[in-house]
C-alpha cells in the first residue's frame, strides 16, 4: 500500500513511535529548534500579516538562500549565513523602502538579485548540489548543536523585544498617524520590525527551507486573523497553529520518505482552508 510505503518507520503504536522520535539526537535537535522557530514565526507572522508586509517577508526568505549557500561555500557555520544575510537584507529593505513601507518594485528587485546570487554560490560549490534541496525545501537531519543554541538564543532575545514593543508596534501598525502624534517612534519601530522579521525568516528557513518559510510565517497567522479579531487571542492562536504544524510535520517526516517542508506546508494549509470556509 502507498501509506505503508510512505511511512516505513511507523509501528502504529503511538507510545513506541513517540519514544522512537526522541531516541535520536538529531531528532531532538530538530524538535528543539522547530519549537523555538514555530513560536517566533507564529508571533512575528501575526504582526507581518497585520502590517501587510508578506512581500518583504518573502524577499527576506529569498535572501536567506544565498546567505546559507555563501556560508557553506566560505566554510562558515550555516546559522551564521542565515542570520547574517537576513539581518543585512532587512537593513537593505529598510533602506530601499525609505518612507514608504510598501515599495514593492524595489523590494522585488532585491529579491530577484538574491535568488540569482544563491544559485551562483551553489554553482561555485559543486559539493553542495545535494544540499540545494535542503536549503530550498528544508531538512531536519543536519541541525547541529551549535545551530540549535544559536536559534534558541535568537528566538529568546527576539521574543523579549517583541513583548516589550508589542503595544506601540500594534499602535503603529493599525494607525501610524495617531501613534506618531502620541509619541510612538513609528519609523524606528518599522525598521526594528523588519529586522525582527529577518531574524524570524532566518530561523524558520533552517527548518522549512527558504522556499517554504511561509508555511510557518504566513499561513498560521493568516488563519488566526481569519478566526479572531482579538489581538491577544489571535497571537496565541497563530503560535499554537505553528507549533502543532511543526511538531506533526517533523514527526511525519521522521517516519516517512517525504521531506519535512511538504508536511509542514500541507498541515498549515488545512486549517487555513477550514478557516476560510468557516468565515467569508
Amino acid at each position: 500500500m502507498l501509506i505503508d510505503a510512505a511511512f516505513q518507520g511507523l509501528s502504529w503504536n503511538l507510545a513506541h513511535d513517540v519514544r522512537e522520535l526522541f531516541a535520536f539526537h538529531f531528532m531532538v535537535n530538530a524538535l528543539l529548534a522547530g519549537t523555538a522557530v514555530a513560536v517566533m514565526g507564529g508571533a512575528v507572522g501575526w504582526f507581518m500579516v497585520l502590517r501587510r508586509q508578506a512581500f518583504a517577508g518573502h524577499t527576506l526568505a529569498m535572501i536567506a538562500f544565498p546567505g546559507a549557500a555563501g556560508a557553506t561555500l566560505a566554510g562558515l557555520p550555516i546559522a551564521f549565513g542565515y542570520f547574517g544575510a537576513c539581518a543585512a537584507g532587512a537593513l537593505a529593505l529598510a533602506g530601499v523602502s525609505g518612507r514608504h513601507s510598501r515599495e514593492s518594485a524595489a523590494t522585488g528587485t532585491v529579491q530577484a538579485f538574491a535568488l540569482g546570487l544563491g544559485f551562483l554560490f551553489v554553482g561555485l560549490y559543486h559539493g553542495l548540489l545535494n544540499g540545494l534541496q535542503a536549503l530550498l525545501f528544508g531538512t531536519f537531519l543536519g541541525i547541529d548543536d551549535g545551530q540549535v543554541r544559536t536559534i534558541v538564543a535568537v528566538v529568546v532575545v527576539a521574543l523579549a523585544a517583541l513583548a516589550v514593543g508589542a503595544r506601540p508596534l500594534l499602535f503603529a501598525s493599525v494607525d501610524a498617524d495617531v501613534a506618531r502624534a502620541a509619541g510612538v517612534p513609528v519609523r524606528l519601530l518599522s525598521f526594528s520590525f523588519l529586522l525582527l522579521l529577518g531574524l524570524a525568516v532566518a530561523a524558520t528557513s533552517q527548518i522549512t527551507g527558504a522556499l517554504l518559510v511561509f508555511a510557518l510565517l504566513v499561513t498560521p497567522a493568516a488563519t488566526a486573523h481569519r478566526l479572531t479579531s482579538r489581538p491577544l487571542v489571535g497571537l496565541g492562536l497563530s503560535v499554537a497553529i505553528a507549533l502543532v504544524v511543526t511538531w506533526l510535520g517533523l514527526a511525519l517526516a521522521f517516519f516517512s520518505v517525504y521531506p519535512v517542508g511538504f508536511y509542514v506546508t500541507s498541515l498549515a494549509f488545512a486549517p487555513y482552508v477550514v478557516a476560510r470556509s468557516l468565515r467569508r
Partner: peptide
C-alpha cells in the same frame, strides 16, 4: 483619513484601547 479598509481585522474596542495605552512599552 480614509476609512479602515474592509480587511482590517481588529475590533473597534481594541482600536479605542490603543488610545489608552498603545504608546506604552512592556507587557
Amino acid at each position: 483619513r480614509h476609512n479602515f479598509d474592509a480587511s482590517a481585522r481588529i475590533r473597534g474596542v481594541d482600536v479605542v484601547r490603543l488610545g489608552l495605552d498603545g504608546a506604552r512599552w512592556g507587557v
